[in-house]
Design a protein around this nucleic acid. Structure first.
Length: 427
DNA sequence: TCTGGGGTCCTAGGACCC
DNA sequence: TCTGGGGTCCTAGGACCC
C-alpha cells in the first residue's frame, strides 16, 4: 500500500517581480527587473527574453531592450513572505519554510478539515491571490523531492499533483536539472554521457551514477528513482553559519582596501551574532580575484568569537595569509606583480561557523590579560564593552547612527542592506 | 556582458587518538 | 621494526540552492 500524496511544496512565482507588478498595475504584463546594476529578480515576461536573476543590468537590457528596471520594495517582500507563511500555517502546523518565498507542508493531518490534497492546494492558491494579490504555484506528491519538482512543473501560477501510482511516468521525461542538487556543472557532465532526462538517469547503473555524481548525490538520485525519499517536513532549525560578502568590481590590492572591507563585513556579521547571543569558533574568509578565481582560508579557535574587532583582526590575518600564499611575499602591504588579472581583487567575504550560544551573562568575565587575548582567548572585556555600547546606540537610533571609525563608510556594496537581510537565516 | 548576497552540503587529505 | 583500522576534527575547494 502506498501512502497518499500529502506533501505540498508552495512556491511564489517570480516573487519580487510579482510584488512590484501587484503594487503598480501599470507594470503588469510587462518585462520588468528588480534592481539596476544587477538583476535581483525578473518577471516572467522578462524571462521569456532570457533575463535571469544574477545577471548584470547591462546584459539584461541587451537581451530585452524594453526591459523596465524598478527599485525593490525590500521590506514589503519580507512582510508579504511572512503573510504567505501565515496562510500556510492555517492549514497545518507542519510547515517548513525553505526561503522567503517557498515552503513544504505536510497536510496528512489536515485532510479531514480541508478536503483533498488538490482542494487544499487550490485553497492556498486562492487565498494568496485574493488576500495578497500574488501568484503562487503548488506541487503535491508523496515525498518532498517530488513535491518540489511538481511545483516547478506547475509554474507559473499552477498546481500539479503527482499520484503515487504515476510517479515514474511523471518523472521519466523531465530534464535532470529539476533534480534538487543537479545544477549546471553536473548537467553538463551528464549531457556529455547522453543523459538529459530523469528517466535516463534512473536507468543508468548505480556504479556509473556514483562515479559521476559522487556518493551523496548518487544515493539521492537512487532514492528518487526508487521512491525512497524519507525526509520529513520539519520545523526550521537554526543557521549553522553567518556570513557577509562584498563584491566591489576590480580593485588593486592594498592593505587599506582589505582593512576597510573586512571591517565592514565583520561589523555586519558580529552584530548579527551578538543580537542573537551567538558566537562562533571557526572564521572563514574568501578572497576572489579579478579573474574570478577564489581561495578560502579558515581558522578554528578553542573559544567562540563575537567581538567585532577580534573578528576583523582574525579575518585580516587570514586574508593576508591567503594573499601571501598566492602572491608570495611582497614588500610593504601592497601585493602586486602577478601575471594576468589575478593582480586585482573582486570580492571579500567573512563567514563564522561552529556556532554556540553565548548568553550575555557568560561574557561578564573578569578582565583577561592581553596575552590571553592574543593566545586565542579572544574575549577582551574592553572590546566587549565597546560592542555593547555600540549595539545599544544602534538599537535606539538606528544602525547607521554609529560605527567603527574605519568602517563608517559603505560606498561599496552594490546592493542595499535591506536586500541583504532578505536572505538571512534565523540564527 | 562580465557575473549580487546569504546560506547548505559534500569530498578529500592530513593530523591525531585509541 | 613495521604496521592495522576506525573515529574525529580541521582545512580547502567546489557545487548547489534561493
Amino acid at each position: 500500500m502506498s501512502a497518499g500524496a500529502t506533501i505540498l511544496h508552495a512556491d511564489l512565482d517570480a516573487f519580487y517581480a510579482s510584488v512590484e507588478q501587484m503594487l503598480e498595475p501599470s507594470l503588469r504584463g510587462l518585462p520588468i527587473a528588480v534592481g539596476g546594476g544587477v538583476v535581483l529578480a525578473a518577471s516572467y515576461e522578462a524571462r521569456e527574453f532570457g533575463v535571469r536573476g544574477g545577471m548584470s543590468g547591462f546584459a539584461a537590457k541587451r537581451l530585452c531592450p524594453r526591459l523596465i528596471f524598478v527599485n525593490g520594495h525590500f521590506s514589503m517582500y519580507q512582510r508579504l513572505g511572512d503573510q504567505v507563511m501565515a496562510i500556510l500555517d492555517d492549514f497545518t502546523p507542519l510547515v517548513q519554510r525553505v526561503s522567503i518565498d517557498e515552503a513544504f507542508l505536510d497536510v496528512s493531518g489536515a485532510l479531514k478539515l480541508f478536503g483533498t490534497v488538490g482542494q487544499i492546494g487550490e485553497q492556498i492558491r486562492r487565498r494568496v491571490r485574493l488576500e495578497l494579490g500574488l501568484p503562487i504555484s503548488v506541487g503535491a506528491a508523496r515525498t518532498k523531492h517530488l513535491a518540489k519538482i511538481a511545483s516547478q512543473v506547475a509554474k507559473p501560477d499552477g498546481i500539479v499533483i503527482v499520484d503515487p501510482d504515476g510517479e515514474q511516468a511523471f518523472l521519466d521525461p523531465l530534464p535532470v536539472g529539476l533534480v534538487w542538487g543537479i545544477g549546471q556543472v553536473t548537467q553538463r557532465h551528464l549531457a556529455g554521457r547522453g543523459i538529459t532526462t530523469i528517466g535516463q538517469l534512473a536507468n543508468s547503473s548505480d556504479d556509473a551514477l556514483r562515479s559521476m555524481l559522487g556518493r551523496a548525490l548518487g544515493a539521492k538520485v537512487g532514492a528518487l528513482a526508487n521512491n525512497e525519499d524519507h525526509r520529513r517536513v520539519q520545523a526550521n532549525g537554526r543557521a549553522a553559519s553567518v556570513g557577509a560578502q562584498s563584491a566591489f568590481g576590480r580593485r588593486d590590492v592594498t592593505a587599506e582596501l582589505v582593512r576597510t572591507v573586512l571591517g565592514h563585513l565583520a561589523d555586519r556579521v558580529a552584530s548579527r551574532l551578538r543580537a542573537k547571543q551567538r558566537a562562533g569558533r571557526t572564521v572563514t574568509v574568501r578572497v576572489r580575484f579579478a579573474d574570478m578565481h577564489a581561495v578560502t582560508r579558515s581558522r578554528t579557535f578553542p573559544d567562540p568569537i563575537s567581538a567585532t574587532l577580534t573578528l576583523t583582526e582574525v579575518a585580516e590575518e587570514l586574508v593576508h595569509g591567503a594573499l601571501r600564499d598566492v602572491f608570495g611575499d611582497a614588500p610593504g602591504n601592497v601585493v602586486g606583480d602577478v601575471t594576468g588579472h589575478r593582480r586585482q581583487l573582486s570580492l571579500l567575504a567573512i563567514s563564522v561557523s561552529k556556532l554556540v550560544d553565548q548568553p550575555v551573562l557568560q561574557l561578564e568575565l573578569p578582565v583577561l590579560a592581553d596575552d590571553q587575548l592574543r593566545s586565542g582567548s579572544r574575549l577582551g572585556t574592553a572590546r566587549w564593552a565597546i560592542d555593547q555600547s555600540m549595539d545599544a546606540v544602534r538599537k535606539r537610533f538606528g544602525h547607521t547612527a554609529v560605527g567603527y571609525a574605519s568602517v563608517t563608510f559603505s560606498e561599496h556594496g552594490s546592493v542595499p542592506d535591506e536586500f541583504r537581510s532578505l536572505a538571512e537565516h534565523e540564527l
